[in-house]
Design a protein around this nucleic acid. Structure first.
Lengths: 220, 220
DNA sequence: TGGCAAAGCAAGTTTTAGCTTACATTATAT
DNA sequence: ATATAATGTAAGCTAAAACTTGCTTTGCCA
C-alpha cells in the first residue's frame, strides 16, 4: 500500500502554474463558503477553478492540504495587523482602550471574511482543524501579561484571562454569524471593552467579614 | 426519481424493535463522540449496534434523522432542569445569584456529556444542525426580561443581553473543551456571575464633560 | 396451531469522492 | 530550433458510503 502523500508533487514555478494554484484556492474558498464542508470536494473545486482534477493533485497532495493552505493565508493576514495595535495601545496604559482596540481589530477581521471565518471555526471536521495548542498558549500568555498590570483585585488572573479571551472571541464571532450589523457599530466594541474592564478592574473586596477597611490583597 | 424519504418506514411497536432503536442511538452516540462526524456512517452505526443496516433504515429514514433524534433527546434532558432554576433565583432578586445559578446549571450540563455537547456545537455540518431561530429568540427574550429589572445604566439592553448570552455560553463551552477541570470549581461560576453583574450593573455615567456630580442619565 | 404482521438480515445496487495513469501540450535554455 | 523540464488533461480506478430488495425468522392472537 502506498503511503498517503504528504507533500505536493510539484511546486508552481512558472506564471501559468501559479495562476492555476490561485484559481484552485479561489474556487475552494468559494465552495467552502457557499456550500460548506460537506460539498467541498476536490472534483468540484477543480471544475469550478477550470483546471483538471489531475492538475489540482500536482500542487496539493490531498484535500486537506487545500483547506490548510486557506487557513494559513487567512491567519497570515489576520496576524499582520495585531502586533502594532497592541504596541500602540499598551503605551496608553488603559485597559478599556486596549480591549476596545482588540475588539475593533477582531470585528474588522470578521467583517472582511465572515463566511470563511465561520467555516474555519465551526464547520471543519476536527481532522482539518489547526490544532495548535502552542499558539493558543502563546496568545493566552500574551494576553495575561497585557492585562496583569491593570487588573485590580483579581484573585486568579489565569482564570480571569481565560474568561476574558473566551468571551471576547465568542462575542464577536456570534455577532458575525447572527447579527452582522453589530460589526459596523463602534458602540459594540465599546461595550465589549466595558465588559472586560469592569470585570478585571474590581473595587476593593468587601473586606471579608471583620476587617472593614484593610484589604490590600494582590495575592499570587 | 423517488423523492428522498423523510419519515421512518416503521415505528417500533414491540419490545424487540424498541431495543433495536435504542441500540442504534447508543451506537450512534458512541461513534459521534469517539470518532466524530467524519466517521459517522450508517454502516458503522449498524455494525456497532449489532443490527443489520436494513433494520436501521426501517426506523430512521436517513442518516440525518439519527443525529436529529440524538439532539432532540439531549435538548429534552437539558431543558428539563432550567425553568425551576430560573424561578427559584428570580425570587432572590439578585443578578449575581441568577447568573451563578445559570452558570452552574450550564456547567453541570456540559460535565454530564461534554463530548456529545462539543460535537453538537462544533462538528455537525450545517445541514444537520438544529437551525432553531425561534427557540434562540425565545431564550434571548427570556434572558432580557430576567435581566431588565436589575440592569443599571445600560444604554442598550438588547445589545447587552446579546453580549451576556454569547459570553456566558462560550465561556462554559470553551472550558468544557479546553479546561474541563474548571467545570468542577465553584469559583468558576462565581467569576462568570461577577463578569455579568459588573457589566450589567454600572455606576452612574461620568456625567458627560462638564457637570461633575449630577448625571442621572437613564437615556432611552 | 396456524396465519399474519412485525422484525430482522444477507447481499446487493448506485453513486460519488478521492486520487492515479498515461499521454499531450507549452515554455525555457542552450 | 530542439532537448528537456514544466504544465495540462482525458479517462479512468478504487473504495466506501448511503440506501434497497427480497427473503427468513419471530412474536402475537384467534
Amino acid at each position: 500500500m502506498p503511503k498517503p502523500r504528504t507533500h505536493p508533487r510539484k511546486r508552481p514555478r512558472q506564471a501559468r502554474s501559479n495562476a492555476t494554484v490561485e484559481a484552485i484556492l479561489q474556487a475552494a474558498t468559494y465552495i467552502l463558503v457557499k456550500d460548506g464542508w460537506a460539498r467541498f470536494t476536490t472534483n468540484r473545486i477543480a471544475e469550478r477553478a477550470g483546471v483538471n482534477i489531475a492538475s489540482l493533485y500536482q500542487y496539493f497532495p490531498n484535500k486537506e492540504s487545500i483547506v490548510i493552505e486557506l487557513q494559513r493565508r487567512h491567519m497570515e493576514k489576520a496576524t499582520r495587523a495585531a502586533p502594532d495595535a497592541i504596541a500602540t495601545l499598551q503605551a496608553k496604559g488603559d485597559l478599556r482602550a486596549l480591549f476596545k482596540a482588540l475588539a475593533t481589530a477582531s470585528m474588522e477581521e470578521h467583517r472582511a471574511a465572515p463566511a470563511l471565518h465561520r467555516v474555519f471555526a465551526e464547520e471543519l471536521p476536527r481532522s482539518a482543524r489547526r490544532a495548535n495548542p502552542a499558539h493558543e498558549a502563546q496568545v493566552h500568555a500574551l494576553l495575561m501579561s497585557l492585562v496583569r498590570p491593570h487588573a485590580r483585585n483579581v484573585p486568579d488572573l489565569d482564570l480571569a484571562t481565560f474568561i476574558v479571551r473566551a468571551a471576547g472571541h465568542a462575542i464577536v464571532h456570534e455577532a458575525a454569524n447572527e447579527r452582522p450589523e453589530l460589526l459596523e457599530r463602534p458602540e459594540f466594541a465599546e461595550e465589549i471593552a466595558l465588559l472586560m474592564e469592569r470585570y478585571l478592574c474590581r473595587p476593593e473586596p468587601p473586606a471579608a467579614k471583620r476587617s472593614k477597611t484593610r484589604a490590600q490583597t494582590t495575592r499570587k
